[in-house]
Each structure stands twice: as structure tokens, then as C-alpha cells.
Design a protein around this nucleic acid. Structure first.
Length: 410
RNA sequence: GGACAGGUGGCCGAGUGGUUAAAGGCAGCAGACUGUAAAUCUGCCCGCGCAAGCGUACGCUAGUUCGAAUCUAGCCCUGUCCA
């Protein structure tokens, strides 16, 4: 359908829409007033990773089209654990750890959203603030009456766990109730009218909408984004080295940049639309590049996303390093480094030391497989000794490069 | 509380006394081909050791045995049904 509100038009054009609870209703609302909308985020780690980037961008789009983003940190729900998509119960985190995680995650949002007191300024709230105050009896009476066990059991998050014969505790079973309560609370306390989230959150969002309607008679809306996978079917944001974290201190900017630079050809257009602010006609042009020319588009993608998430400087440095490293065969600023002692170092030790191999055995296998290089030169001898004195470039495979830098005398 | 089924390497999943560091698949790493892409093919994929080898590992503990992931006992955990 064609939307009249700039919000839904933008979301539609750029590929954010999967399901809407009431497309016309929301479209009409967004066309005539500022819609405060929220997305909930976990506080289980000190950083979010690329898997959450769609949701973050969604809040950014909300603000770009004149609405108010509300970031809900799951300080309360993290204490329970979302059973969605999980076989195993989540570990409990201490209160201090959760608070620290929230503070760290906030720094990411500050890059994507403008916070403040204005009507369309972003705010961040913590659902522990209201969930923590709820008494058990109060919760059962007010909220519990609106949920039937029959319905709760029919939710995928519950059903899958039962089908796979994995345990689900009563604690986790309550997650959806508290999640739903969040929406109702926010609608009441802050006039929030929209919740967004990944497609796996559909059930939770619908619960919140119904609860809000039943308790307060207030009409609220829900939007979900498609489940994002890379073209080869993997979940976004996971690499060999682990999750692609958004926070500076969790993943170096160069590695972050490389993640995007190595995107699958087929994903380039989609990623540009979702994760950058580039205009659509520009994206269409980049996306249409054929053969190896698409690499230019990947560089634009890497630059733009890194710029948003890590800042202009980080993006430029990462690109410079990449171009020096790959095109020039030299070394760039941002590469990982390891000390090169004056007397030199064994190749195996260097590979382990710089983090390219997890164990000596792995380093040896890498060498035996022909994947180790010094200054671009393949080294097949696992007893190879790297002489000290001059800086050398060490590589594991074609993509992982680092620098062995002589330790300054004294 | 009772009956039954089950707990194997990152995941899935074979394996019922030695030849099992444990089949196979997925994921991952490297090589070839390329474009720092995909697909394909090849090799690798617990740790230490140049190596012979050593150490650790099949829920936990104690046993039986020359020898156990495999047998026994107790315990812990999970599921299903019953109370």
C-alpha cells in the first residue's frame, strides 16, 4: 500500500517493514502528530552488536521523520531473561553489572539519536524503574487477569522450548507479561503509541497492544522488521572472531569496517538502505555495479556505517588502513600490533601473540596449511624465526594482517 | 514421591567393554580459483611436543576390569506420564 506519513513511507522504501498491527491506523496517526515510539533492548552485555543495528536505525528513522524515539533498556526484564529463540535459560546478572551495561550501551545510542527534552528528542528509560516497583499480587490482579495460560502456551517462544524438551522456568514464562506491561506503562506515562522490534518480538508486541487496550482502552501500534540474515543464511553480526560489537572498546574500528567491507555482494543494496542515510537513488546506482566494481559500493557501505557508529575519524582511518594493507601491500595505522623483540621471535609465537591463532597447535596448522605470511611471503616452515630490528607485516590468511613492531631500545 | 526415557566435542548427532581423541553433518580456519564477494574443490579443526609420545575429554563421584563414553552403585540435572 502507499503511505501518507513520511515515517511509514521511509520505512517501507528502505526495507524495514515486516508486519504492522494496523497499517492504516498508524499511518494516519503518524501523518498528523508526533508519535513517540519505543524499542526494547537487552542489558545482558556492555555493548550491542550488529544484530541490534536495524532496531537502532529504526529509532533513528523515527526521529528523522519527526517523531520521538524512546529507548527502553531492559534493566528489569534482563533480570528475567527473554526465552525467545533460546533453548537455555539465561544467566542471571547482578544489578551492578546491568547498570554498567546500560551506561555503556547508552554511548552507542548517543551516536545515532539526538537526546534531550524537546518534543522529538530521544529519551532512554529503564524498565526496572517501573517493573521493580510492581508488587506480585498487584501484578497478578491487574495484569495477570488479561493473560490466559492457553494463549501463553501457544506462543512460539514457549512452544518451541516445550517441543525441544528444553526446560522453561516459571520466571521466564512471565517474561511476556512484563514485556507487555512495559508498553502499557509507557503508553500511560509517556504517551508512547508505537512499539517496534524484530520479527521475533511480534508476539510480545501484540501482547502489549492488547494489554494496553484492555487496561486503558488506548489504541497503540506495533511494527516489526524482517529477520535479517546475510545472503548465505547466517545471522547478522557473527563472525569467526565473535560478535560484531558496536562499542569502540568491544571491537576495534578497523575490524568493524572490515565486517562491512566483506559483505556478500547480494547484501550490499539491502545494507545500504538499512544502515546508511545515503539517498535511495545513490544506493540504486551503487547496487547496480557489476563484477568487481561492487567493491566500490562495499567501501562506501563500510565507510558510511563506520562513520555513523564510530565517527568520521574512525571511518577514515579504517579505510586508509585497509587501502594501504590490501592495495599497497603495506601497513596501516589501525592494524593489530605485537612487540618484536630485538632478538626476533618465532613465527608460531608471533601468530599466537598477535591473536591470529588461539594456540600453538593452531598456529602450526595455519603454517602447515600455507596460511602464514611474513611481509606477504608465504612461510611453510613452522620453526621459522622472525629476525628482530625491523618492522614486519605478519598475515594469517588473506584478510588478517598485523604488524610486528620492534620494541624501542631501553 | 513413583514409573519410564535421557545427559557425548561450538551446535546437531553416531557410538553399548579394547582397533575411539570418539563416525557423520553443520558452523569455523587455511589453500586453490577470484574481486578482501559467492559457488566449487582440497586440507585442517582438544592442549603440549620437532617427533615418538604425554596430558585432558563423553553430567558428577566411587567402583568392576589388564582395559570403560560404553558395565555397576550413589548423586546431580532434564523430559514424559502418574501421584
Amino acid at each position: 500500500m502507499t503511505y501518507t506519513s513520511s515515517l511509514l513511507r521511509l520505512l517501507d522504501e528502505r526495507g524495514y517493514l515486516h508486519q504492522l498491527t494496523d497499517a492504516e491506523g498508524l499511518d494516519a496517526l503518524a501523518a498528523k502528530q508526533v508519535v513517540p515510539g519505543y524499542i526494547g533492548f537487552d542489558a545482558t552485555a556492555p555493548s550491542l552488536h550488529v544484530g541490534s543495528l536495524v532496531q537502532i536505525m529504526l529509532l533513528r528513522r523515527l526521529q528523522q521523520t519527526g517523531h520521538k524515539p524512546v529507548v527502553v533498556m531492559g534493566g528489569g526484564t534482563t533480570r528475567i531473561g527473554d526465552p525467545t529463540g533460546r533453548d537455555e535459560s539465561r544467566k542471571m546478572l547482578s544489578d551492578e553489572a546491568i547498570e554498567a551495561n546500560i551506561a555503556s550501551i547508552r554511548t552507542i545510542f548517543e551516536r545515532f539519536l539526538t537526546f534531550g527534552d524537546g518534543p522529538t528528542d530521544a529519551v532512554m528509560v529503564n524498565n526496572h524503574d517501573w517493573l521493580g516497583k510492581l508488587g506480585y499480587i498487584e501484578l497478578l490482579q491487574q495484569v495477570g487477569t488479561h493473560f490466559t495460560i492457553n494463549r501463553m502456551l501457544s506462543f512460539d517462544s514457549v512452544k518451541l522450548r516445550l517441543e525441544r524438551e528444553q526446560p522453561m522456568t516459571f520466571l521466564e514464562f512471565n517474561y511476556m507479561i512484563l514485556q507487555g506491561y512495559d508498553f502499557r506503562h509507557l503508553a500511560r506515562a509517556m504517551g508512547v503509541r508505537l512499539q517496534m522490534g524484530g520479527s521475533d518480538q511480534w508476539g510480545n508486541i501484540v501482547n502489549g497492544i492488547e494489554l494496553t487496550r484492555r487496561m486503558d482502552g488506548q489504541e497503540v501500534y506495533g511494527v516489526t522488521t524482517p529477520l535479517l540474515t546475510t545472503a548465505d543464511g547466517a545471522k547478522m553480526g557473527k563472525t569467526a572472531a565473535g560478535a560484531v560489537w558496536l562499542n569502540d572498546d568491544a571491537l576495534p574500528a578497523y575490524d568493524f569496517w572490515q565486517y562491512w567491507r566483506n559483505a556478500d555482494d547480494r547484501d550490499v543494496g539491502k545494507f545500504l538502505r538499512l544502515f546508511t542515510d545515503l539517498p535511495l537513488d545513490e544506493i540504486a546506482r551503487l547496487e547496480a555495479l557489476q563484477g568487481s566494481e561492487i567493491n566500490a559500493a562495499k567501501i562506501v557501505l563500510a565507510n558510511e556505517v563506520t562513520r555513523l557508529c564510530r565517527g568520521d575519524e574512525a571511518a577514515r582511518a579504517a579505510e586508509a588502513t585497509a587501502s594501504a594493507t590490501f592495495a599497497g601491500g603495506g601497513v596501516g595505522q589501525d592494524l593489530p600490533e605485537f612487540d618484536l623483540p630485538a632478538e626476533g621471535i618465532g613465527l608460531v609465537e608471533a601468530l599466537v601473540g598477535i591473536g591470529f591463532a588461539a594456540s600453538r597447535g593452531e598456529a602450526k596448522r595455519l603454517i602447515a596449511g600455507g596460511g602464514a605470511r611474513i611481509d606477504g611471503e608465504g612461510i611453510a616452515d613452522e620453526g621459522f624465526h622472525i629476525p628482530g630490528g625491523t618492522e614486519v607485516r605478519i598475515s594469517a590468511g588473506k584478510k588478517k594482517h598485523g604488524v610486528l613492531r620492534p620494541v624501542s631500545a631501553g
